[in-house]
Structure formats: C-alpha cells, structure tokens
Write a protein that binds this DNA or RNA. Structure first.
Lengths: 343, 343
DNA sequence: AAAATTTTCGAAAGCGATTTCGTAAAGAAT
DNA sequence: ATTCTTTACGAAATCGCTTTCGAAAATTTT
C-alpha cells in the first residue's frame, strides 16, 4: 500500500490537486459539499501531507539540530532535555546527534545538518582551541551565515554566534572558596578536561580564591588525567606527595571514583579530605557520603539555547548582534564537605 | 546571503541546471573543461545540495525516528546510544523525541514523524495495555503499514511489527532465584511499573522461582508504587508487617532510594536485607554498598532495533514476517546481596 | 434582462534537486 | 564527401505540495 497523495485524492474525485489542497486547508474557495466529501475521504484513508514536500515549499523544516559530544554524560542529557522541552512548546522537533568526542564525526554531522535538514543548530563542540583551531574554523565557516547557530558550554571564541556558557571561573572560585572557608588548606584538582577552556577557567577561579585568602598557588596540585589513565595510581601519587585535605574533581564520574578510592585508603570524607565535584547528576546525590557538587543547571542552559535559536529562526531577535549568555552555577552542599563555621 | 542553489550556479555560467547537476555528479556527459570550472566554483562558494529537495526526489530521508518515554532514564539513554551507533555506521541520522510519559505527546510525535519525515520508526510506547488500548490502537494504525516500525521494551501485542524485548520473566526469575539461593525466604517487590506488562512478567518470574523452591506466593509482598508516593512511608509499612530479608525493586532509582531508607533504619545490607534492582545504570555501581542489578543490555537492544529497522527500510529482510527478538538479561552481582554458598 | 458580483474551481508556477530523452555539433568511418 | 557515432549539452518531467491568478458558472444587483 503506497502512500496516499493529493494527486490520488484528486483523481478519485476527478478534480484538480489544488482543489483538494484547498479543501484540506478548509479554504472558502471550495464549496461546502465538495469540501466535506474530500475531507471525509482524506480522513477515512489516513491522508497525511508529505512533510518533505511541505518543507520544500515552505523553506522551513520546523526542526532544530543538536550536536553534543556525549549522551552518556548527565550534563548533556539535561541540556538536551531542556532543549527538547522548549522546542516542543514552540512547535519544533529536534534531531540530536552525538559527535562522540570525534572531530571528524562532528564535522560530518555539521555538514549533514547544515544542508537544509534543519532550521537551526545547537552545538557543543568537541574542538578545544589547540591545533584543531584552523580545522574547526574551516568546518564552521560552512555553517556560518548559512543557518542560525547557538553554541553552548564548549564554545569557540573564533565563531561569531549566540552562545550560552557556564560561568566556570566563578564556579571554580566558589567551590575553592567553600573548601577554604571550611578549613581546607591543601586543595588538589583532578581534571579530565584540562585541555579545554572550561577546565582552565575553573582552575583560574581556583587560583583567584587561593590568592584572596593569601595562599600560594602550587602547580603540582593540578593533575590532568586522560580517560585511559589509572586514577588509583595517580591519586596515590597525589595523596603521598602532599598532605591534601581537599579535592576538586572536574567531572562527576571522576569525583565519585576519587571518593571511592580515597575512602578505601582509609581517609574519612569529609574530615580528612573534603571533596567537591562538578556536574550535579544522579550519582552525586545517592553516593555515600552524598557529594557536594557544582550544578551547571543543564536544563536551564538547554532551554535558553532553544529559545534564543528559535528567536533567531523566526527573526524575532534582530539579525547580527550576537549575545553570549553566562549562566551562574550553584554549589549544592551535601556531605562530602565540612559545614561552614557558624558566624 | 541566501543559499546557493543549482539555478544560481547555472545562471552564473549561463548553462542549464541539469548541466550543473551533472557536473557536480561528475557525469561523463559534461566536458572536462566546463565540469571542472563548475565544480571549482561550487566548492569555492560552499555549495551544498538541499537535503529536503533531494529527499523529495529520492523518496527517502536517511533518518530514523526514535520515540522514548524519558531521556532521564539510563536504560533509554543506553538504547538511544546503541541506536545512534549503528544508525551512524549505516549512514542514517536519528531524530529523537521524548514522549515524557504522555500518551498525547506520543501520539503527536508519531503523527509528526510518520508523514515522511523519517524512513522508519523506533518506539517504546508509553501506553500500557489498559483502558488506553483502543486509543493507542487507533494511533498506531496510522503508522501501521505506512512506515517500517520497530518497537522495543514497552511493546504492544496488538501491533504487528518487529520487536525487541527484554526477557523480563527470566529476569524476575533469575533475580529471585539468586536471592533464594543466598538464603532469603521473604522477598518483597517494590514496583513502580506495576501497570505495565513488563512489571507483571517480572513478578511472574518471581512466582515461578518461588514455587520451584517450594515457597508459597504471598500477594501482600508485592507493592505497587506511584511517582507521587512516599517511599519511606510505604517501606516502613512493608518492613513492619513481615520479616523481610530480601527486596527486589523494579527500577534503578527506587532501588537506590529503598536501600538508603533501609540502611537509615539500621538494617544491614545485605546481611539483614539483601537487595536486587533492575536497570544497571551508573548509580548502582557507585552507591555503597554497590547494588546487585539486573542488566537489560540497553545499548545492545538499541543496536538490534536499529539494525532490524534499517534492514526493513532497505528491504533486506523480506516484507511481513515480523520477528520478536528476546534479549536475555544478566545479573550483575555486587555487594547488596550475599554470596552464593560454595558448592 | 443586462450588468456587476460572487462563488467555485482549474491551470500553472514554484520549491531545489535528479534524470530521461532529444538534438546540435564534433569526430570517426566508409 | 557522405554517413555514422560520439560528445556535450538543454528541455522537460518528476517528487508532493502550496499558492497565485484567471476564468467559467452561479448569484445578485440594477
């Protein structure tokens, strides 16, 4: 059974396709008798207009593309959730693609989506600003000016577009300050994202908090790690070298793992070592002790992205004049840190 | 800057659009000189064929639609991941929609996608087989026969299509048997999905294991819960009433919460009460004690769905002759259950 | 009854691409 | 020099739908 088209219906009633189209749109140009006959027939046979054809004439698809590095990361899932929510409210669908931390795959997806498949794009790029800069620059040039783009979290300064980013400097600052205020004096950072700008900003915030309290910054307290690294080995190194009493880990899973290892070695959390992590997901809340985390408000970020993008698409916001929205983080205090002293 | 089309290029060289199209397809019909001039120009100006127009003539979109109830559920995220993986390998994109446990939203999405926007559909329906049966039946009739459909996990018997489901009976059986084998004699079930077929199958497996060991089935040991319910209150009721020494919770978050409450009441896990949960996500592994869980192999399910669907789309598998693939679960034994006695 | 409107419908253009087919020009064959 | 092939390109149909415009037919107005 092949799909029913306007032409089929037209033939069935020996009328023209325009008559059928108008009837289904309830145009006043068509007599009530014919109109209702046609509509009844269409309904009875489950006629549905071909979206593709409609898109072609309308030059719009009412869908937005989302490209994120990883769907197994809770932060991105939350963002996706937020995007989906407002996209849906405003009549758009989303087509979501995972770049899987691969520059090549991101480029492919970008290429695919920017050719009319979607009305706009939301992107958290996998490209850090290192050697790949020219590469990504070239890639994004294909998107640039062709289709509205909103970047979030992992953004590229070189690209001019709307952006929604996390105040990572302040996040690093707040977390560090909290540890300091609760009595920590030797705070180590474990960073699985050290090559990214985000990672650097958090460390900058850390430095700022340190210097405000008169502590010297010690380079050795920052440990970049790779996915393949043995965290246990690295941690033992850190713990033996200095008398650490606080740890900041820059993603959720690393935080949870680090706490596990630390406790297994006999330290008490938070009394011996306090821990703060980034990305407030499901894990942090249910782990024991529950982790104090920096929440980036992923869902809100997603909503903001989607709203801004759709505004652009529908030309509500004036063209050009790109804005960068900075979303503040919150510190969700739980049990992996000590209490603030009463004033 | 408006998008470059074939017509634009044609005008620029004062040739016809067919010449341009053929040139870009490297047709032998066009002389090398003209061809390379046109191709160079197209590349320099970032020409990209309009996907929508191509889709219209090819009558294919190379994308598949995925509808899941909830993206904040780790199982579905894993499935999505699996789908994305093979879809990508086989040259398809996915457009993912969240029904958010709303029948209405699911129907809307179904309607949207089944009108030519995608080549095939993967669906985990939010409809249980109760009063809504007719409703969903009507909805799915629009999809039925119009577009290839694969259902997974939450499937509908009434719909004829390919399906990938979890062996929930066996899962319930295995989990119960394990608890029994490790010495439990009073096993309670907490079911947030009691109205679904899946929930019932797991309970059936539970009964089977019980009867094989000569235990009587006690209806009161099964407690359905709703999202709005106060788990603590309900649990206290269960714990006081019977001398429970084993608990099975039918989703991950409930399992984690239940364990927290039980431990807070002073019970030792697993010695006083052993716990097994369903859906092996991130939580279960990092919670203390780590939870013994039934893994449904979400990613594998996703891959299977995608492969089957694409086979259908590309007519590799013969039409009709729908298959239901049953995926076995695995019991991931961790610390919330006692060890099996040595033989 | 003639003119002016209104109603009701169809023809056709267009969205941006692909593809079949026809044909003029150039080259090869006799 | 004439016929036969290639070569190289354009015209036009098509995908399914929307929309403008034109024009009969029906109705109302004078």
């Amino acid at each position: 059974m092949t799909k029913l088209t306007l032409k089929d219906i037209a033939k069935h009633f020996s009328v023209s396709v325009s008559t059928v189209s108008k009837s289904l749109h309830d145009s006043h140009e068509i007599s009530d008798g014919l109109k209702s006959k046609i509509r009844k027939y269409a309904k009875a046979n489950h006629y549905k207009p071909n979206k593709i054809a409609q898109n072609l004439v309308n030059r719009s698809t009412k869908t937005i593309g989302v490209i994120i590095p990883n769907i197994l990361n809770y932060f991105f899932v939350q963002v996706l959730y937020g995007i989906e929510k407002v996209a849906n409210e405003r009549g758009y669908s989303i087509i979501s693609c995972i770049s899987d931390h691969s520059l090549k795959k991101e480029a492919m997806t970008l290429d695919l989506l920017s050719s009319g498949a979607v009305d706009g794009l939301i992107l958290s790029t996998v490209a850090s600003e290192m050697q790949t800069n020219k590469h990504i620059g070239k890639i994004l040039e294909t998107v640039d000016n062709q289709i509205p783009l909103v970047m979030f979290d992992r953004v590229l300064d070189a690209i001019e577009c709307d952006k929604v980013i996390v105040d990572d400097f302040q996040a690093g600052y707040k977390a560090t300050k909290y540890l300091l205020d609760t009595g920590c004096t030797n705070i180590a950072i474990i960073s699985p994202i050290h090559s990214t700008k985000i990672g650097r900003l958090r460390v900058d915030g850390y430095k700022q908090a340190l210097s405000e309290k008169g502590f010297a910054f010690d380079d050795k307290l920052i440990t970049p790690i790779e996915p393949k690294d043995d965290l246990e080995f690295i941690l033992s190194f850190i713990l033996n070298d200095k008398n650490i009493d606080g740890i900041m880990a820059l993603d959720e899973i690393t935080t949870v793992k680090a706490m596990g290892i630390i406790m297994a070695r006999g330290y008490h959390v938070p009394n011996d070592i306090a821990i703060i992590g980034f990305t407030n997901g499901r894990l942090s809340k249910y782990v024991t002790p529950a982790l104090t985390m920096v929440s980036q408000h992923g869902s809100y970020i997603g909503e903001t992205c989607a709203n801004r993008l759709i505004d652009r698409i529908e030309n509500i916001s004036s063209p050009g004049n790109f804005e960068t929205k900075v979303v503040k983080t919150s510190l969700i205090v739980r049990e992996s840190t000590r209490k603030l002293p009463m004033v």
